[in-house]
Write a protein that binds this DNA or RNA. Structure first.
Lengths: 181, 181
DNA sequence: CTAAAGTTTCAGTAATTATTGAAACTTTAA
DNA sequence: TTAAAGTTTCAATAATTACTGAAACTTTAG
């Protein structure tokens, strides 16, 4: 299994980007490879294509499963496991987004909630307490908004995103709507 | 300069989260410290509070400036530099968001654009080409949407975010609006 | 059963990234 | 000027993270 120059380019690039996307190089390459190939691949094919060890592939698959980005399939009469992306490009992007929210926002939100409950001990901490509240509110808004987006169908999301420069118009519209009702 | 337990907690937490937010521990701690303190701090105070070397602070400040997250101020009659967050919590979050978009999306968008221009060499690459196109379109939509959000005023953004569960209603609304006009 | 095919684990090591601290550089008050 | 105060740089090193490969484990066909 060796890759055409174009596909190799793509895969290597995703490897480099991997760490910025929240995983590591190997895993970035693995997603790219799976996404670009119509047929599911075996762990050995992945190892061979990317020139990495079998053990590394195994760990990568495990990690990708924790992100819900791959699914395992089987071919009748063949006991090997075949791996494929778990859903459309859109689905994958959505899961990465959601998973990152969990890792990057939730823990902080939880700490700040506790700190707010504690209250400020000294008047000197007053400013700090205020800032903490502000950050908390911001993170909570982002969390709610993101949950909202998750609830929309891909089509609705497309619509929303494509709104483009008319977003502000829609906001105005919403204001008017509220006044009427 | 030593920190109250609550503030220390907050600062340490932000340090741990730092790498998930796109920088490293030291820098996470530095932002936290600056945000939580009403008065601007000197590099030495930062080094002392966080128990890190002076050089590390200098590199951190540099990095934070590249993210546009800190500003330098001066106190008359004192030649030291004093550092403070560059804007409100909201402004900072916005800049981090934007900067990350640049680092995590733009390079890939640019590669994919090139690869689409090249076209597919073999019919075997047809599927790959298609996937690349899909990813490209997704990233482009995200980029445009994000530029749109940047253009909104904080107040408009607040409104939009607070729309919450009525987002889908707004989408429906927009559909109706389009049909009428 | 059992042996072959396949998969996972993990200790050891490699690669990467972050940090220190001393030297070099810059600025300014006198 | 110049020396004191302040800042930056960067080579050396520490800390962290990723990867390998051999051994252990699991599954299944015969």
């Amino acid at each position: 299994m060796n890759l055409s120059p174009k596909i190799e380019n793509f895969v290597l690039h995703c490897g480099e980007m991997g760490s910025r996307w929240g995983f590591n190089r190997t895993i970035g390459q693995m997603v790219a490879l799976l996404v670009i190939h119509e047929q599911p691949l075996t762990a050995n094919e992945i190892a061979e294509s990317l020139k990495i060890s079998r053990g590394n592939v195994s760990m990568g698959i495990k990690e990708l499963q924790s992100w819900q980005l791959v699914k395992v399939t089987h071919i009748p009469g063949d006991r090997k496991e075949y791996y494929a992306p778990n859903g459309s490009i859109w689905d994958l992007a959505n899961r990465v987004f959601e998973e990152r929210r969990k890792r990057e926002i939730d823990p902080t939100l939880s700490l700040l909630r506790d700190q707010i409950l504690e209250g400020s001990e000294s008047p000197e901490e007053e400013y700090a307490q205020n800032q903490i509240q502000t950050i908390h509110d911001l993170l909570e808004t982002i969390t709610k908004w993101s949950a909202e987006l998750q609830r929309l169908s891909p089509e609705q999301l497309q619509t929303l995103m494509k709104l483009g420069s008319s977003v502000s118009k829609v906001i105005d519209l919403k204001d008017k709507l509220l006044k009427k009702s």
